[in-house]
Amino acid sequence: MNITQNIIHIAAQILGVPPTALDAGTTREQIAQWDSVRNLNLILAIEQQLGIEFGDQEIMAMASIGEIAAAAVKRGAAE
């Protein structure tokens, strides 16, 4: 499982949507359930499961699955 698929798997659980509803291009605006509370829970879950910590600016800027995956790789997560 690559990093994008991994993040899709985590996001599907946190957001309560099927993984098939998500891909690298999926943005926050496209998923009604992806509100700020779930976004925070998603970030914390990714950090915990991948053993990384996002920077403050990254947290504010990440708005899609692809951006989260790219930031996670930048923070040392395996691709």
């Binding site: 700020s36 509370v37 976004n39 925070l40 829970n41 970030i43 914390l44 403050d56 947290i59 504010m60």
Partner: peptide, 20 residues
């Protein structure tokens, strides 16, 4: 008006309390 993400992560959330 709230933008909960804009303030970042409160300590209590790290202790398991829901952000809302």
């Amino acid at each position: 008006h709230f933008d909960l993400a804009a303030l970042g992560i409160p300590e209590e959330v790290l202790l398991g309390v829901d952000l809302f």
